[in-house]
């Protein structure tokens, strides 16, 4: 794998994570538990999809095949998506959505924080703009973790189950592969061990405050980063990509 291929892959991971989670969040709009949460979910989705545009536009430039952000977002099939499995998991109930969001935000924030110092100027610039948003997302989702975990007996039980169910999807976020290693040696990719340390401390603190149990270490699912997804992603893409695929010669 040469440097350019690795960079392209890495950018797709960053962009697809943001895009797929943002897409999932838009499914909530009009159906959230309270008006304030309509506004809050929309804010997070706006930030994430905005970030995805930046990453994917740059991915298109690096690839050099004339694909722009929309072509990459709306004309690639599942095998070519590089988001982590966590982000394509269904919204479920609000506790599932909050747990998915928090487990990701606690990873996303230190990742972007590290990428601000990236040797690639473009990545550093996008990260510098995005990490503040990610910090706000992490604060919001952590607050909801605590509210639901330490709320009622019902909300506590529901959220504990959400955390248990989603936990096996957290491993791949921190498992480096050839893409990570190639770029890390060039000062481009973030050091996932350091990101994991921050995540681990944050998660331990939040779970404790939320009176939740940390799930037992067990088998971790993986594959999203390399393009081996769950059944969920196909349905997400079928909706998200419908118009450009049905009207390939149209501009919108």
């Amino acid at each position: 794998m040469n440097q350019r291929q690795a960079l392209y892959e890495y950018l797709l991971r960053l962009g697809d994570n943001a895009l797929i989670l943002g897409q999932r969040l838009t499914e909530w709009i009009g159906h959230a538990p309270a008006l304030e949460e309509e506004l809050g979910s929309a804010n997070v989705a706006l930030d994430l999809i905005g970030q995805a545009r930046g990453w994917l536009a740059y991915a298109g430039t690096v690839e050099g095949a004339g694909r722009d952000e929309d072509t990459l977002a709306l004309q690639r099939d599942v095998l070519d998506f590089r988001n982590a499995l966590l982000l394509e998991q269904p919204n479920g109930h609000y506790g599932d959505t909050i747990a998915r969001q928090y487990l990701f935000d606690a990873f996303h924030y230190p990742l972007l924080e590290a990428l601000r110092g990236c040797a690639d100027q473009h990545i550093a610039a996008i990260a510098a703009k995005s990490y503040k948003e990610a910090g706000y997302h992490r604060r919001r989702s952590a607050e909801w973790m605590v509210r639901l975990g330490d709320g009622t007996a019902e909300s506590h039980a529901k959220l504990q189950r959400s955390v248990d169910t989603l936990w096996p999807y957290t491993g791949e976020l921190f498992t480096p592969d050839e893409v990570d290693r190639t770029l890390q040696s060039l000062g481009v990719a973030a050091d996932l061990t350091a990101v994991y340390q921050t995540w681990d401390e944050d998660v331990a603190r939040t779970l404790k405050t939320a009176t939740l149990q940390r799930p037992q270490a067990g088998w971790m699912q993986s594959g999203g980063k390399q393009g081996r997804h769950s059944e969920q992603l196909g349905y997400i893409l079928a909706q998200m990509q419908f118009l450009p695929r049905a009207y390939p010669d149209a501009r919108w």
Binding site: T26, I29, A42, E69, L74, F242, L243, P244
Partner: peptide, 30 residues
């Protein structure tokens, strides 16, 4: 009124259109 337009949020034809529509539907919630 958020519902009929919200119906197209997951299917907006470009990322830019998706953001504009999302911001609009969010305004309506506001």
């Amino acid at each position: 009124g958020m519902l009929p337009e919200g119906n197209w949020l997951t299917r907006a034809p470009s990322l830019r259109r998706k953001l504009i529509l999302l911001a609009k539907v969010q305004d309506e919630a506001g």
